[in-house]
Design a protein around this nucleic acid. Structure first.
Lengths: 330, 330
DNA sequence: CTGAAAGCGCTTACAG
DNA sequence: CTGAAAGCGCTTACAG
């Protein structure tokens, strides 16, 4: 590996001078600069960022911890983060918990040991141990997707999004609305969205039936099963179903179609998340668009603010808009 | 930030000793070890990886350059890479070229300056400048998706995959088969797949009609347009169409359905890539499954081999299998 | 079993 | 305008 010393020697200057032309800091004579630049060009020298950050205490790296990489939400989020960060010369160090909660803590520590300038966490379940770790982290931090007290967060208004979706169904004349959710340990998707659904029903004095409410995980298969369970268990058949993710909704549609129900004539289906798929299933799925790229961008901006103005920035909560997409499934 | 010196002081030993317990190397008395471990536990100390790698010349980071993050292919690939790397304590430094070819070179340099232990490039277009940069890189390197001479690669057999898909169509009785491709500058998806399609037609003495061959980019919209163009320009209507990606195929299906064609009765449609969506569109899409996770895993294994046995490993090419998925669109 | 010292490749006051 | 020197937080022969 070629170092700053080699460049200095070849250019006939001290490494201090090389450093100065590299960083465009301090005075360097035009002559010296040219010689240095020529040698750099010739040798293809690139400064060792590790040595640099050992001195400067800056790494120009932001750690991102994701619950799962291969998911549309995650990749759109990372896209947004990268868009903002790349412009400022920052790189992303990616870690993937694969939905194992212990790993969130492990990776937070690891990112710290790698001296990242900041951490963006796409949170799912929040537990006390994690909160403690975040508190002790002591580097710029922002969470996406879940609210965390005293911490900067970028969130979606899950409650109102779900409520509005339920209300859309109600406006279309539905009185018997089923629900496919996920584990309420996930406060945003599991808990708040269900609350939104329930709130809408209550406000409109509609029946809230336990058998119409099922829980799945984040895949198509479990949406299929949940829909099956609802139809098998319910004494009275619902006329619409609201699923908290598009995958769940698509699974529900699969079951309904296989069982000979017509969508939306017999049962209307609504999802949430605006996955690419939602547009191309038949019938096309009514869903809720959360702007994940935007969430990534906002999170990245916040991190940048915190990095550049340490202490100045106070923790703030950004709530992002959602947008309903009406299609043929309702 | 708390350092090894602070730990040494508090534990009443030298930092050499602390280093030894940290790395489980050399002799340390049980007593000293315990004291050190206690202080580490108490303080929550994590060693600075940057300082470490400045000494050891190892960073435990592998750089990954992607043409686009928010795509199913990319995220499945990264998933596979991460699966293997995480077990060995390696992290991924992610860079995203957003399909801008100049950025591939820029990021290769950047990753080098960050002293990554290896680089995995998910290549699309290969140009001379890039090849030169790869040659000069001088760190473990593997390319995925495109063949590069004298460089380790993990590729799919795009030619035979496309050929086999065309043959499936032919076996189903189709004689007039249209094609939606992408820019041949993309050797694998653009060039080889088209060659495979053409080879199948030739072998079976089927008509090769220019107007039946259109080119799109990597999205649904351009598949729609390509299908439209084919149908408008062709004097004779094809009975099947092979698209080189699922998105293109889905776009084609959209156009066909809107225009009142029945799939597969009037026109059969086949895609490639086995996107999640392909399973849930109507009719479900016949496609080709390339195991991207597996490609990521293989690439990661190769990188690891090169890192651990420098000089020993020779450049090798891994060709991954594909698997045809027959569904209702043909 | 333990520690002093050198050194990894940089940057940055400081003195000239 | 320029350079010698110190120091960032580690590891690793080397000597004891």
């Amino acid at each position: 590996m070629i170092t700053i010393n080699a460049i200095a020697e070849q250019a006939g200057v001290s490494r201090t001078t090389v450093s100065r032309v590299l960083n465009r800091s301090g005075y360097v004579s035009e002559e010296a600069r040219k010689r240095v630049l020529a040698v750099i060009e010739e040798t293809g020298y690139v400064p060792n960022e590790y040595a640099k950050s050992l001195r400067t205490k800056k790494t120009k790296v932001v750690g991102v911890v994701l619950p799962k990489i291969s998911t549309e939400t995650a990749s759109r989020l990372v896209d947004g983060i990268d868009k903002i960060l790349a412009d400022e010369g920052y790189q992303i160090l990616l870690t993937n918990t694969n939905l194992e909660p212990e790993k969130e803590i492990e990776y937070l520590k690891l990112l710290k040991s790698r001296n990242v300038d900041g951490v963006i966490l796409s949170a799912t379940n929040i537990n006390d141990e994690l909160l403690k770790e975040i508190e002790n982290l002591n580097i710029p931090f922002v969470a996406v997707g879940q609210e965390i007290p005293d911490v900067s967060t970028v969130v979606f208004d899950d409650f109102y999004a779900a409520k509005e979706m339920a209300e859309l169904l109600i406006n279309r004349g539905h009185q018997k609305i089923a629900f496919i959710g996920v584990d309420p340990a996930d406060r945003s998707v599991g808990h708040s969205r269900k609350d939104g659904y329930l709130a809408a029903l209550k406000e409109h004095d509609l029946p809230i039936v336990d058998d119409w409410q099922q829980t799945g995980i984040f895949d198509v298969e479990s949406g299929y099963k949940a829909m099956k369970t609802i139809l098998e268990k319910a004494t009275e058949r619902p006329t619409a179903v609201l699923a908290v993710t598009d995958r769940l909704a698509v699974g529900a549609m699969q079951y309904l179609k296989e069982s000979g129900y017509r969508i939306p004539e017999n049962i209307a289906v609504a999802g949430m998340g605006a996955s690419e798929m939602s547009k191309y299933v038949s019938p096309s799925l009514t869903t809720m668009d959360f702007n994940y790229e935007r969430a990534g961008e906002e999170a990245a901006r916040q991190i940048l603010n915190k990095i550049n103005r340490p202490g100045e920035e106070k923790e703030k909560k950004i709530v992002l808009n959602y947008r309903i997409i009406k299609r043929n499934s309702i």
